[in-house]
């Protein structure tokens, strides 16, 4: 039974950093066999089309590896801007905060997942 991965992005990423995040995260899903990925973007003040695409990519790639992705904690100003930009992140689940994101993952996976203790693996933001 795979654990959930939790990634907290704590700084505004420039493009190459975002690509590194995508890469590392997908590798991590593969290594751990995680069934769920939570990406906490509550500290991110700008999501443009590139960052939006990365979030979409992570969700699509994880899904192929049988893991669901939930983006949590999007700021209101970011949400309004994304809609105006024309990006609605189809196929990405969203939740208000980490706790609700976790609940969502549990219900999504609830049918075929026996709920032991929710294991969690924290991963730091990447500054490399």
């Amino acid at each position: 039974m795979g654990p959930f991965l939790l990634v907290t992005i704590q700084i505004d990423l420039y493009d190459r950093l975002a690509l590194t995040l995508e890469n590392d995260l997908i590798n991590m899903v593969s290594q751990t066999g995680a069934r769920g990925v939570l990406i906490d973007i509550s500290a991110v003040s700008i999501v443009d089309s590139f960052m939006g695409r990365i979030l979409g990519n992570i969700a699509s790639m994880s899904r192929i590896m049988d893991a669901e992705t939930v983006v949590v904690g999007m700021q209101p100003a970011v949400a309004i801007t994304l809609v105006e930009l024309g990006l609605t992140l189809q196929g990405v689940y969203t939740a208000l905060n980490v706790e609700k994101g976790m609940e969502l993952l549990n219900t999504k996976l609830g049918d075929n997942l026996e709920l032991d203790d929710d294991e969690e693996e924290d991963q730091d933001d990447r500054n490399d």
Partner: peptide, 12 residues
């Protein structure tokens, strides 16, 4: 529709 989309992005 925009308002609904923004609400969903927030997770509601």
């Amino acid at each position: 529709i925009k308002t609904v989309s923004a609400t969903r992005l927030m997770g509601a």
